[in-house]
Structures are given as C-alpha cells and as structure tokens.
Amino acid sequence: MKVLVAVKRVIDAYVKVRVKSDGSGVETANVKMSMNPFCEIAVEEAVRLKEQGIASEVVVVSCGPQVNQETIRTALAMGADRGILVQSDEELQPLGIAKLLKSVVEKEQPDLVLLGKQAVDNDFNQTGQMLSALLGWSQGTFASKIEQQDGKLRVTREIDGGLETLDLATPTIVTADLRLNEPRYASLPNIMKAKKKPIETIEAEELGLDIAPRLKVLNVSEPPARQAGVRVESIADLVDKLKNEAKVI
C-alpha cells in the first residue's frame, strides 16, 4: 500500500500568537514555525504503517512557498521516503489546497492519503473532507485508530458522544485526531539521512487550477480580553460568591 501524507507549516502551536496592529493578520516575522501538530500525527501513522510492513512507500506533500521544504524535511526525518512541494507564494485556502492535492494524488496513485484533521492556524478542518469529495473517495475523519481489514480500512473516529467505527473502501482519505498516536522525535542520524532524500517541486501555477482564495480576510482582531477576577480564601467564601454575587448556583 502506498501512502501519501499532506503536511502544513504553521506557527508553532506553543507560540502565543500576536495580532498585527493594522488588523491585517497575525505576526509571523521572527516567529517559530513548525509542522502542524495534527500533520505530525498523520506522518507518524504513515511511518508506523511502513514499519508494520503495511505501507510500501510514504510520500509527503506540502503546498506553499519554498520554505515548506523544511516541513517536508521534518517528515522525511521521521521516516517518510520522499517529498513533493507544490510551490505557490499565493495565499492558499482549503478548497485550493484540496485541488492541488488531488492532482498530486492522480499522479502518485496512493491507496491511502493521510492528513491532520485541522491546522492550528486557520482552524478550518476541511481539507481532507474536500480532497475526498473531489476524488470521489471514502473518508475517515478524526481518526483515533486505523486497521487494515480484508482490502478495506477500518477506522475508529472520535465523534461528539464517543467513538464510531467505519469500514472504508480503498483508496481512501483519513484525517488524524489527537489520540491516533504520539509522534516520535526524529533522531540525529535520521535528520542527516533526510537531507539526502529527494524532494520534487511542482509549480502550482502550472497545474492550471482555480486556486484563488474565495474568502477575503477583511480584518483580524484580538478577542475581547478576559479580566482576572478575585482570589477567594476558602471554599465557604467561594460558594458564597457563586451563590450571592455571580448567582450561578
């Protein structure tokens, strides 16, 4: 089984983002960038499938500027075999990315495409579902477990009230949720090895797809700040305040 994993470069999840004072977006200059945490989980799962002998090859793809090569290298250091950069310096939104990924899928013919369930920058939670739709494939979103099952993929999904298990016809799309696995740290020898692994570049423009953003960001603002309240000295004090001041119990 050939596995394709899509990865996104985002502001590191542990960085406190700052909104630019002109409202045009958030500050990205001199800010630590990393692979989106859910994409890391997707890469880890693909590498595990390879280690278990289920996956024959793991190809990692990223859409965006040249610097996304760094993110692809991170995935290669984790154990992916080769990379593809679909290069574009323009703003990409999930529908556009899904179209770009579709053309990579058509070229690579994977049996499984793994993605993170959402990116922690724009929080759209769309790309996997949209790619699946464009390909006319099945989808297993928010996966916490993946098993191979007689030519199908059995995926356990995190849903509102608990878990749901689906059998998916392959080829298929799976998006990773938090509990699917715990991603490894790349070892130094593997980081060195990754430098020699090939990354192919495809110019997004040359694919001739309509990937122009459909949503125009008019303004980005800080959410209203929450003021710290008061310290209470005891449970009795707390209960009194909740009953008589806040009137919530």
Partner: peptide
C-alpha cells in the same frame, strides 16, 4: 470566525 484556537478573530467575506 476564530482562528489560532480563538486567540484571534478573523472577519471574512465570501466571494462564492
């Protein structure tokens, strides 16, 4: 819509 886990709010206009 909130972005960055609600650390910023994005006002978007849809062209669709």
């Amino acid at each position: 819509r909130p972005i960055y886990a609600g650390n910023a709010l994005s006002k978007v206009q849809s062209g669709d």
